[in-house]
């Protein structure tokens, strides 16, 4: 059964100067154990999609349309107490900055044990044993001793491992990793990504990996969803999207990845900037920057068409069949 199904999700922010949609009409599906990468530039709505799935949109924002189903059950309209029970237990979250994600005044063990005991009815000793086991699984050396130390006694990479343990310790079926490596040293990034991939394989947890790093997506994800200006513009298996991107924005992203080897004089980049949520054009949001735009692009918004596995929102692919 499909693990997660998001349909036509819109998150709106109600401000004094009117309503602004942070994400619009986002649909995606995720199978158990699958790793879905979500890429896009800052403000494209990647993190907002993750926050909506886990029910952590903060006012004045809220889900204004669409639905989210987890294992067939609707979770976007649950009362706060019910969604709280899902968080951590069925959907875990990994945040960007391990230095600020852990409470400085509680030991790593206290935070793990509390999380475990919130969701699994275990006696204290059993929860502690489980916490030690999780620290070992995420690669903390001497977990029996480290469990009683405080976050500041860990390095950044080690803290992100603790964050991963906290996200997975109640064995959720889905984990949303929001830029899990952005705040880390490059040398540590690869280790954390490898760990995440290994744990996903071991536990069968599905992962939504939010990042702006195409390299991370390429080596980790099964499928990738590209977001632009609050919408998904292309979805597909990673290898296919990387090899043959169908949306001009995705092509632009690929072209801007620096490569090892003979370097071009100037790294290709996409001209212009992504429109702000309150100033999106009526047609395709990418049209003003698109090298291939033609007649319908500026007036008519292209729909995401194709199968849940491979689809794209671009007039080039619909109006002019390749």
């Amino acid at each position: 059964m499909t693990l997660l199904s998001v349909k036509n999700l819109t998150v709106a922010f109600f401000g004094r100067s009117g309503t602004v949609n942070a994400i619009e009409d986002v649909s995606l599906e995720l199978e158990p154990g699958e790793i879905l990468g979500m890429v896009g530039e800052s403000g494209a709505g990647k993190s907002m999609t993750g926050a909506a799935i886990i029910g952590l949109i903060e006012p004045p924002g809220r889900i204004s349309a669409g639905e989210i189903r987890l294992e067939g059950e609707r979770i976007d309209n649950l009362p706060p107490e019910a969604i709280r029970r899902i968080r951590g237990r069925r959907i875990g979250a990994i945040f960007q900055d391990p230095l600020t994600s852990l409470n400085p005044v509680l030991t790593v063990g206290e935070q793990l044990i509390e999380t475990i005991r919130t969701h699994l009815k275990l006696p204290r000793e059993a929860a502690r044993a489980r916490a030690i086991d999780w620290l070992r699984r995420v690669g903390i050396p001497a977990p029996e001793a480290r469990i009683d130390t405080y976050p500041h006694q860990y390095s950044g990479g080690m803290r992100q491992r603790v964050v991963i343990a906290l996200a997975l310790c109640a064995e959720p079926r889905l984990v949303i990793a929001d830029e899990p490596t952005t705040a880390l040293d490059v040398s540590v990034q690869a280790q954390v990504i490898a760990l995440l991939r290994q744990l996903a394989r071991e536990t069968g947890v599905a992962v939504i990996l939010v990042t702006h790093d195409m390299g991370v997506i390429a080596e980790t994800a099964d499928r990738v969803a590209v977001m632009y200006a609050g919408r998904i513009v292309e979805v597909g298996p990673v290898a296919e999207v990387l090899r043959a991107p169908r949306h001009p924005y995705t092509s632009g992203l690929m072209a801007s990845i620096p490569r090892i080897g003979p370097r071009p004089e100037v790294l290709p980049q996409i001209e212009g900037a992504m429109p702000r949520p309150h100033a999106r054009p009526p047609g395709c949001a990418f049209a003003p920057r698109c090298p291939h735009r033609f007649v319908p692009c500026t007036d008519e918004r292209p729909e995401l068409t194709g199968t849940p596995v491979r689809s794209v929102a671009c007039h080039l692919t619909t109006e002019v069949p390749a």
Binding site: I54, L56, R84, R85, I86, R87, G88, R89, G92, A93, F95, D97, T100, S101, L102, N103, P104, V105, L106, E114, T115, T118, H119, V163, L166, A167, A170
Partner: peptide, 26 residues
């Protein structure tokens, strides 16, 4: 407003614990 409180919420901890254990001590 801190990240560790957001992360505590994301782990589904109860409001009571978040307010009186995680936040108050800080």
């Amino acid at each position: 407003r801190t990240d560790y409180i957001k992360f505590a919420r994301a782990r589904g901890l109860s409001n009571r614990s978040i307010h009186f254990r995680h936040a108050l001590k800080n």
